[in-house]
Write a protein that binds this DNA or RNA. Sequence first.
DNA 1: GTAAGAGTTAAAGTTGACTTCATGTCAAGA
DNA 2: TCTTGACATGAAGTCAACTTTAACTCTTAC
Lengths: 135, 135
Amino acid sequence: MTIGEVGRQSGLAPSAIRFYEKAGLLRTPFRKSGRRAYTPDVVHQLALIRFAKDVGFTLPQIRLLLHGFPQNTTASTRWRTLARGKIKELDEVIGKAQAMKTLLESMAIKCQCRTVEDCAKCLATSGKAKPSLAG
Amino acid sequence: MTIGEVGRQSGLAPSAIRFYEKAGLLRTPFRKSGRRAYTPDVVHQLALIRFAKDVGFTLPQIRLLLHGFPQNTTASTRWRTLARGKIKELDEVIGKAQAMKTLLESMAIKCQCRTVEDCAKCLATSGKAKPSLAG
DNA sequence: GTAAGAGTTAAAGTTGACTTCATGTCAAGA
DNA sequence: TCTTGACATGAAGTCAACTTTAACTCTTAC
């Protein structure tokens, strides 16, 4: 398969496929007169990469998942190892977003300020009571 | 106050304060022999900017909040107007992150694949049943 | 034989919110 | 007076995950 065909089947731009290759996610395929000649299983590999991206992994993390463990490491072990940290990250994202939403809703409901300058002073005086988002 | 003092009081780098000025969040202050000379209320304004950032607004949105409405628009109206869209965005973020987490947990629990290549094929065959994250 | 279309590369551009750098000015303290 | 430190500016660098561009090669169809 040419890189164009792989792109159509996987829904990716050829440039993205080349990029994944350079990033170490895909092995360099055979070349036929200079051009990449893929076997069809690369489409599965790309689907896996997409799935990993969908659950939040970065490209370096996906490279780790694919090629960063001792060779006899099972896939389930690889997933579990990486999933632990990522689930933590996701919990943080969720918590932070919920805190932001709460803060925003209470602001939209309770703010009686006439000018934004009033808000600035209001925040300064009530600042200590505000829930913190830091972390 | 010099920009350094403002930075120390607001917890921001002077470069960030200059950046906010250029981005249209802060009005250009008076100059004393070329240097920015601030009145203390800029610290409140910066606290407000930080708060807006904390609840998820981008700098262009904050500029809108501060200077993008007719002058007699109340602060509460400004907040409500901008909060509506942002809350929607946050709901999407939360939903997406929760979906990612669910997918990741089920992967970590249920994956029995020996190699990651098996995962790739497994995803290809069961792909239609997978919950979509698109959107 | 030639033109269109797809492939190749390396390098630069994109977005957001800044920081860092290079270079220059200025002011206060010893 | 001289040094040190803070300030000024504009340009370039940062991160992620690609895309776009420029310049070139190669295949295929006519």
